[in-house]
Structure formats: C-alpha cells, structure tokens
C-alpha cells in the first residue's frame, strides 16, 4: 500500500523514511532463509514481494521523490531502537547461530519499526487517509497472527515464544492508532490530532 501510495502520488510527504528503512532491514534479515529452506511457493513469493516493496519504497523516498520527503518531521532516533534490539537478539534467541540471531533481530526490530512513523504523525498532527489505511493493515497483519498463534497452539502444538511476545508488543504499539482509525478515519474524517 505504501509503495503504491508514493508511486501514484509522486510524493513521499507524511511517510517516515526511517520506518521504511527499518522495514527493509527487517525483511532482509528475516528472509535470509530464502537461501536455506523452502516452505511453499506462496511463502517464497510473499517474502520476495515484501523485500522488493520495502526497497522500492526506500528508493522512492530517499532518491526518486527525495524533494517531497518531509525529513524535518522524521526525527526519531533509530539508533535507540537498533542498538537495544541488536543486543537483545544476541541475548534472547532460540539458537546462537548467525541466521537465527538475524531472524530474532528482525522479529524484535519489526515490533518497534513503526515507531518513527507514529512519532512523525504525532509531530505533524495529521496523516493522509491512505497513509492511515496502510498503517491499519500493517498493524492488522500482525494482530491477526495473535489469533493464528492461539489456533496453532491448540491444533498443531506450535508455539514460538519470541514471535508471540514480539507480536503482542507490536500490536499494543498500534492500539492507540487503531482507536483513532476506528473513531475518525472509518467515520469519514481525516486523521488529525489536537495541537
């Protein structure tokens, strides 16, 4: 959605380049298993689409439509996310191997990667409606996994504590936005915050 939005509007205004850079890093470190294991054609396709879209979005923001990118409001310090997340992925993981640590890093980083975008909206006090749709579906994507994990726990005995805890954290971070989306955007109003 975000790649599409920038492509058709020719502007990167209102989109956090820092969040998009973090997502590119998330998908790159998560999907290194493209080289080591095959799950399904669907799984492989989606991984490639996520990686391609995240890099395309970064290219659009920082290269093609750089003049329209609102960097002055994109001031979240990403090192405050990357450094602790990097440390934690070395300390708490399923297996102390390079691929597994990178996978863990990507799971932890994804859970907080939206913070620069939410911070940017809180600074500017508004967001375009299509940007709110993007954020809603990005949040919903992980929130639905919570339901899926309960299902898989009961019916397959599958349980991944790292993914579940990170997924809960990620979903909680979206809660305030979900509230605004339902009470404002779904009622036809633009998302604007009181000054």
């Amino acid at each position: 959605i975000v790649t599409f939005k920038i492509t058709i509007s020719f502007i990167a205004l209102g989109i956090s380049g820092k969040s998009q850079l973090l997502f590119a890093l998330v998908f790159t470190t998560r999907y290194l298993d493209l080289f080591t294991s095959f799950i399904s054609l669907y799984n492989t396709s989606m991984k490639l689409i996520y990686i391609a879209c995240s890099y395309a979005t970064v290219y659009l923001i920082y290269m093609k439509f750089k003049a329209t990118y609102d960097g002055n409001h994109d001031t979240f310090r990403v090192e405050f996310l990357i450094v602790p997340v990097g440390g934690l992925s070395f300390l708490v993981n399923h297996d102390f191997s390079p691929l597994e640590i990178l996978w863990t890093f990507s799971i932890y980083l994804e859970s907080v990667a939206i913070l620069p975008q939410l911070f940017m909206i809180s600074k500017t006090g508004e967001a375009e409606t299509i940007t709110t749709h993007y954020l809603f579906f990005l949040g919903l994507y992980r929130a639905l996994y919570l339901v899926n994990w309960i299902w898989r726990y009961y019916f397959e005995g599958f349980f991944d504590l790292i993914a579940v805890v990170a997924g809960v954290v990620q979903t909680v971070l979206y809660c305030d936005f979900f509230y605004l989306y339902v009470t404002k955007v779904l009622k036809g109003k633009k998302l604007s915050l009181p000054a």
Partner: peptide
C-alpha cells in the same frame, strides 16, 4: 529443539 524448526511464518 527450536533451532531445527523452520520459521514458516512471514
């Protein structure tokens, strides 16, 4: 053990 489990989710 978990290390042998494939990460089959996106």
């Amino acid at each position: 053990s978990m290390e042998l489990a494939k990460h089959d989710e996106l």
